[in-house]
Structures are given as C-alpha cells and as structure tokens.
Design a protein around this nucleic acid. Structure first.
Lengths: 246, 246
DNA sequence: AAGTGGTCTAGACCACCTT
DNA sequence: AGGTGGTCTAGACCACTTT
C-alpha cells in the first residue's frame, strides 16, 4: 500500500475499496468494517482512510450512518440519475407517471431486428436481435407519453417472455435486479414534432398537435449502451423539467 | 466564528468566504490570501480551513494552483454549467450559436415592468423595473432561436444603455464581468408549442410549425434568481442534447 | 531560498445509535 | 456504557512555482 509515491495514499485506498465492492466482497446494503479497523488493515491513519471513504460517499458508492457504520450504497437509478430530470405540472408539482404496457416482442433480421438507428445507438449490427417494449405512460390518469423501448436481446435474456403485467413502472430498477444491468449514464435528444396518427390515438389528441420527441440512450457502468428509448410526450399542462448545478 | 456549535466550523468558514466573494471583496480571477493567513484570520486550524477551501474548489467556486495560490474561479458558465446541455445537429456535431440582438429596453409599472410570470420567476414584485433583451440566435447562419430575456434592473444598472452591438454572444460571461452577477445554477422547463406569427417571421417558417419552448431561470451563487429567459427553438435538423451522469 | 498548496499523521473530543 | 461516524487541532513533510 505504500509502494507508489506518485499516487496519493487515499487514492490507492479508495481504489482498493472500490474493487473489493466490485468483486462482491462487500455487497450492496452490507456494512464495511469500522473506520479504525479499516485504517489498521490498510496501515494508514484515520484521516487518510476517512478521505477515501469521504470521496466514495460523495460519489454515492457508500452511505454513512452516524453511530451505525458505513454501508455499500444500493443504487436507485430512477431516483439518482433522473432526479433533476422530471415531468412537472404547470404549477410546478412533480408527478409520478404510471405505465400501461401494450406489447413486448423480440426479433432479429432485416424486418424485426435492430433498425439502423437502433443499431447505431446500441452499438450493435443492424438486424441484430433486440427486445422491444411498447407502452403508454399516464400522469394523473391521463395518457401523456407514447414510448418505444429497444434493448439488445443478448443482455436481457428472457425479457421477451415476461408477462406484460409483471413489467414494472420503474424499468431501471427491474433491469438491475433481474438482468444485472445497472444504468449509470444517459443522453437525450429533444426536439419538437407533430403528433402522428398513432400518437393521436394513444394520447387522445388531434393529429399534428405539437409534441416533444425525446430520444434517450442509456449506458451501463462500463459505458456499454443498453437501452434506446423514443418517447413522444404531450406537453399540454405539463412540461419537462431539468435542473442544472454549477 | 466559534459562536454556533450546531453548524460545523468549516461550514461557517466556507459560507463566509462565499459571501466575501459574492460581495466582491475577492473578484473572479484574483487570488485569496494564502491558507495559513486565512486560517489565522478565521482562528481555525490549517485542516479546517482547507476543508472549506476543498469544498469550494470541488464546487468550482475556487481554483487552486499548487505553488501559486488559490484564486476565485472565472466561471465560463456557458461552458461549465451548460456543458452537458447543447444544441446539436442531427449528425451529432456540436454547434456554436451566434446572436443577432434586436432590442434592449427597460421599464417598470403595469405595462413595461415585470409581468406576473417574470415576477414569479425572478422573485420580485409584478411591475418592478426590469431590462428586456430580444435576440435571435443563429446556428450555421440560420435563425433557430427566438429569445426573450428578462433581468431585474436593480442587479444590472446601466445594461439598458449598452449598445446592441456591444452585447456579446455569451451573456453569462458578460454578466459576471460587467455586473458581478455569476450564474451558478439554473432550471429549465421544456414543452412543445406551435410557432407564433413572430416566430414564423423571425425563423422563416410557417406559423403553427411545431417548435420547442424552453423557459429558463438562472440563479446566482446565493440562489437569487437573476435571469428569466424564454426561448422558442426550431428543431428542424437540430435538437437539444442533454447528458446525465450517475 | 522562500512561499504556496498537497498529503499524511496522531490524538482529542463531540454527536449519534445500540445494548 | 461502548461503539460508530463527525469535527477539529497541531505539526510534519512533500511537490510545485516564483524570486
């Protein structure tokens, strides 16, 4: 632990703890040894060890409970990643959309596999096997989103056979628990468009009503694209809310 | 500085330094006294003072140069705050919008002062004195945004008399340098709408074309709202791009 | 050589939770 | 009461920049 002089001690300790978490030595939800024990084990001072834990806590990998101990964080991606990224009513109130799943299916080849757009986003070959989920999301019992979700079948074996009623509202938790796919970053492209005939039908609006189109690609911890999602959103009485912090 | 036992010392020091920056005692780009002097002034230990500086550095308020000193950050807000928040072409290339300023004016009272919406966003009284800037922003020489910017006159004394051609493209730099107003956070509401007659004229499109409407409110270091901005954006061949990191 | 920030230590005391 | 994390101190030494 004192070998390299180039990298600071607290950095080395931090990385060691991180790999021990990644290797499963300390599972999410379990408590680490107390600070004095860890300091003894790593042969560093209390302060140095604390600096490592402080940084990991700041990065949400660890959660500390005063008087109790330090635990490995259980990542709640839906809340952590999309916390500053919400649907709100005009009055500013946050909303919690519910889902109505319409169809789930899988396929490969030119007609049923990944389109060029999907292949590009997911970094797979056009025509590769994918699973598609169609759903409508409702806010205050009113249909607001029309969603088209595509994931590579290879990463989600068996997803296509899950009954529609068993697919939960918060997909990313589900992905983590059932398929060990943890969403860690995402990007989104937002533009305005006219409602299609299907949007009109699903969202109970006139065709050509202006709606938002959001194209989202999600990545896992290693940076592999794992989900492509196109959302058509009706912004009548609602809006997309984003917070930025410097 | 030792009065309250409830809030940690480093927190008090941090907030004190923050207000001294906000009050202009240490302008952006200037160096603070060295750590030992500051520790002496605040009657705290080196470590406690460092913790305050560490947090401010992490929040990009200060920038440290080993061997030289600690300086107040020159925030390039357009790059720092809106770094993951850009206009992109369909091919994914980033763009750098330019501006055509149309009108700048100030006023107060029922007709020319803050509207209810502006007053609400800026936390001022309806009818309070404001300065308004109208501009069109161009990407690749094509008008894409129609912008309506409103700021409280009190914070921007003399802004209304600045010649249009002297108002730069990157407003937040300008605000910091000329008015000591540093944008530190923002929120944005995004929705879809039909282009108005004015949008059609300014953006060379048909009325009722679907466009994005973005309502942005910016806040300074202390959390005071300092700018309200409504942008109408044509998303033909371009989109709004957002990155999220867990 | 002098001055600045960066790392690290050893030890003290406080606040909170559990038993 | 005992154990945990949270705060704070005083001092040492290192790395970098300037004079």
């Amino acid at each position: 632990m004192r070998a390299l002089k180039s990298t600071p001690l607290y950095q080395q300790v931090k990385e060691s703890i991180l790999s021990r978490i990644a290797d499963g030595e300390w599972a999410p939800g379990t408590f680490l040894p107390c600070e004095t024990d860890l300091a003894k084990e790593y042969q560093v001072s209390h302060g140095t060890l604390r600096r490592a834990l402080d940084e990991l806590t700041r990065e949400h990998r660890l959660t500390r409970y005063q008087g109790k101990g330090t635990a490995v964080s259980i990542l709640d991606s839906d809340q952590a990643l999309f916390k500053f990224f919400q649907i709100r009513r005009e009055d500013g109130a946050s909303t919690l959309p519910t889902s109505k799943n319409i169809r789930i299916c899988s396929g490969s080849g030119v007609h049923k596999g990944a389109t060029h757009e999907e292949a590009d986003a997911l970094n797979i070959e056009p025509g590769a096997a994918v699973v598609r989920l169609r759903r409508v999301r409702l806010v205050d019992h009113r249909p607001l989103f029309n969603e088209y979700i595509t994931v590579p079948q290879q990463l989600f074996q068996g997803l296509e056979n899950v009954p529609l009623e068993s697919i939960p509202n918060t997909l990313y938790d589900f992905f983590q628990q059932k398929f060990n796919v943890t969403i860690s970053s995402a990007h989104e492209r937002i533009s305005a468009m006219s409602a299609s005939v299907e949007d009109a039908k699903r969202l109970s609006i006139e065709p050509h009503t202006p709606i938002l189109r959001m194209d989202r690609t999600c990545f896992d911890i290693k940076g592999t694209p794992v989900e492509h999602r196109v959302t058509h959103m009706l912004t009548d009485g609602y809006h997309y809310y984003i917070e930025l912090h410097g």
